[in-house]
Write a protein that binds this DNA or RNA. Structure first.
Lengths: 195, 195
DNA sequence: CCTTATTTTAATACCTGATACTAATATCTG
DNA sequence: CAGATATTAGTATCAGGTATTAAAATAAGG
């Protein structure tokens, strides 16, 4: 068949655009040593939109993704909160949170979940995590819905001690003790936050 | 002055584009009840590029950001590694890693950095973090370049005890003890979907 | 070898969302 | 009212295309 060359070019075209989606037809034509018209026919048959449309799609797509990532600031969803006393949050382990080889959720997601909840309980972004005493008990796999429960177990002067336990189906998978030091004001203090 | 209207329109224009950067001059003109030319003059004086350029910038920008986030799998850059012995990694604290109010880096970045390095030292994604004993010592602000140093301090049967210390300008800001249990089994993989 | 089908180029008209520039009106302000 | 500022109009031009029609080039088949 004649189309051997064509098929190869199509593959090359595809890969080139994957590597750099910002190439114009003109640039593509030059790189593949064919005419612009050929490139356009190729794009047509490969269902690849024009540069501007590609760019637009990327921009839109990325906007959505970035927003989703922003929300990872609040790790887990706050279900219940009794300020300065206790709080409960939930988080679903999605496939992108696990290690590929083992399928086990990366530890710091649990840590982040617990830490976030602990901070929420003492109400403030403006707080420092003094000390975390962390124990991972059981590995967690994708699909699990984790429930974190935080309890303020002691409140010393300007310093909270909070236990957070994370359970998956009533099985404790993680626990940690946090010492939270609420920030008094702007960063006037900075140092000497020994726990 | 006459420009009161103008200033207000400029603000409105700016906000409109912040909310939806995909508006054409024509749409903007309609929404602000002025001519296209006015919009163009406004954009010029506000230094706002045309739709296509805005879109392009967003697409490019987002590409970079998304890549950066992908790499958060490996939290920090591995500088040196002596397998089963020690390792060093570096991470720069960027403004998006800090709490807005205080400017202090969120604790779990340090944790993730340390945890990641500990896992790298015993060579395996396929490892479970058994226990972490974590101490945050000094708050860290944006711009800091953290250096994490991990050392295997004991190796028991199928179990590593690793100390990780993170320093910022030779000041220790974080330390943690990890007990890493390398995963025995490959856990017969889930299914792979499309390529 | 000539004929036919496929592939590649070429050429032209038109589109969108602009820039760049010139010039004419509005609108306000003293 | 004059003069300055702000707004609108109009035209030429551009990039990066789409859409369409038509002519070459190439390959193959019989």
């Amino acid at each position: 068949m004649n189309s051997a060359k064509k098929v190869i070019r199509h593959e090359r075209l595809f890969k080139m655009l994957q590597k750099n989606p910002f190439l114009t037809d003109e640039q593509l034509a030059k790189n593949l040593a064919v005419s612009i018209q050929t490139i356009r026919l190729d794009r047509l048959s490969l269902n690849i939109p024009e540069l501007r449309e590609r760019t637009r799609q990327m921009a839109e797509n990325a906007q959505v993704k970035l927003k989703a990532i922003d929300k990872k600031d609040i790790v887990g969803d706050l279900i219940d909160l009794e300020l300065n006393h206790s709080g409960i949050s939930m988080m679903k382990i999605t496939p992108d949170m696990v290690l590929e080889k083992t399928g086990v959720a990366r530890g710091y997601y649990m840590f982040a979940m617990a830490n976030t909840l602990a901070l929420a309980v003492v109400d403030a972004e403006a707080a420092l995590t003094g000390v975390g005493n962390v124990k991972y008990k059981v590995p967690v796999y994708a699909g699990a819905t984790l429930v974190a429960k935080a309890e303020v177990i002691r409140r010393e002067f300007n310093k909270y001690i909070i236990w957070v336990k994370i359970r998956n189906n009533n099985e404790e998978v993680f626990r940690a003790k946090f010492i939270i030091v609420p920030c008094p004001d702007e960063r006037t203090q900075a140092n000497e936050d020994r726990a």
